[in-house]
Design a protein around this nucleic acid. Structure first.
Lengths: 234, 234
DNA sequence: CATTTTTGTTAATGTAAGGTTAAAAGACGA
DNA sequence: TCGTCTTTTAACCTTACATTAACAAAAATG
């Protein structure tokens, strides 16, 4: 049934603890890549596809949060678990802001970690058959390449999109002709849903509308109180 | 923006702690139903739709796990967070087995709880993939798309519906040719049944009748003192 | 039949959400 | 540190919505 072992990227600077944890996870049928610091962690992340990242927060050179941010830029979906020192509540909150899926206070119980890993991986598996793979869209007479972040009209000169512009347009494109709930964009892109992020999103909608003006068959409609809808009229 | 506040079922037997927590959550813009034990919790769960359940593990009459199992039988999707006593690792593991989404050791930090709630609710939101079936209705020569909130006559130009118009028409459509009790609409849509909401509903019925005028085979009949009936004559 | 209750309908009002532009604040590399 | 790009916040305006009031018409009540 199971095609391949789940791959975990473990970034932990303490060599003893790291090795023990790695062995423990491998004993439990995970394929583990162990990086000794944030730098190395990011290098390894770029080289491979992982099903889960476990990041220590406190590390020399590059801490877990910075690493998480870099990882998130490459991949918005991969689950991240932070290992934080006990009592460091700030770390926990900061972790969630960066888009963590969970955290564990050190020292933690290994069985609990295992449960969390299982729960998270299973959860992600049921989530939309990774829309993460889709980066190129045809939107009316436009071509959106959301990996390189540009938008071309009629194959002409590409317009550069900022990260947020890009992600928002991509989300809209993924839901073409359908509702793209406000909440979805806010939680996925802004990672927070409040008055200000919501207004910020409206600003970006205005920007996108400007970009899309050249093709009058393409428009972004609002569904009051729900979200937006990218429609391509024929 | 406010689509509607997220609803939380809080089941906690300690009256002091429960009340404080409830108030805290309400201050943070959640709608909270507080049950004092497992029994009551299940009763309340059956009566309403919740976006999240927070269950204390240790409770008289019916503990959190048993309650969670019952809830899972009714609803496989609603997120559950357990509140467990510190150090009770067994509880944590058991919780995950019952299908918990997360747990918190008591005493916990309220901000952390808030983050977890946010994270879990938004996670569920992204999982919920649109099953368009539930949202599309044929009413005589009309097509109602209650997800995108529009009503089309003979495939012509769609008329936009407001949220209340939409929900009301959808409820009527779900009961096509049958009685749609006043009380049902008021409790489901207005979440309150009093003179004013009732009058408000009448106003919406008038609006819907206007929209439906183009097809003289479609009408909304009143059943005095009972409710309304959407009929499609052949 | 007179009276009360419920419903039909239109219009007015107040509030919230969204559209848009510009300025302020952050982020980041040179 | 400066300049540039990006994002957020502010401001102002428009539109969308829901509620309430007001008055008319049916339906029930007795």
């Amino acid at each position: 049934m199971e095609e391949h072992k789940k791959r975990i990227l473990l970034v932990e600077d303490d060599p003893n603890f790291g090795t023990v944890l790695k062995d423990y996870l491998m004993m439990n049928d995970y394929e583990v890549t162990h990086a000794k610091n944030g730098m190395e962690g990011f290098e390894k992340f770029k080289k491979d596809d992982f099903d889960l990242c476990i990041l220590d927060v406190m590390m020399p050179y590059k801490d877990g949060f910075t690493l998480a941010k870099e990882i998130r830029e490459k991949n918005t979906d991969v689950p991240i678990i932070f290992l934080t020192a006990k009592t460091m509540k700030e770390d926990v909150l900061k972790g969630y802001k960066v888009g963590a899926d969970d955290y564990l206070n050190k020292p933690f119980d290994s069985e609990v970690l295992l449960m969390k890993i299982k729960a998270i991986i299973q959860r992600k598996a049921t989530e939309t058959i990774s829309d993460s793979k889709q980066f190129e869209f045809k939107i009316g007479r436009f071509d959106l390449n959301s990996k390189l972040r540009f938008l071309k009209f009629d194959g002409g000169d590409p317009v550069k999109l900022s990260p947020k512009e890009n992600e928002l347009l991509r989300l809209l494109a993924l839901h073409e002709n359908d509702l793209m709930p406000r909440e979805l964009a806010l939680t996925k892109i802004w990672r927070d849903d409040n008055y200000f992020t919501s207004r910020s999103m409206d600003v970006y909608i205005a920007k996108l509308r400007k970009y899309l003006k050249p093709d009058d068959k393409v428009e972004i409609l609002n569904i009051h109180g729900e979200g937006f809808r990218l429609v391509v009229n024929s």
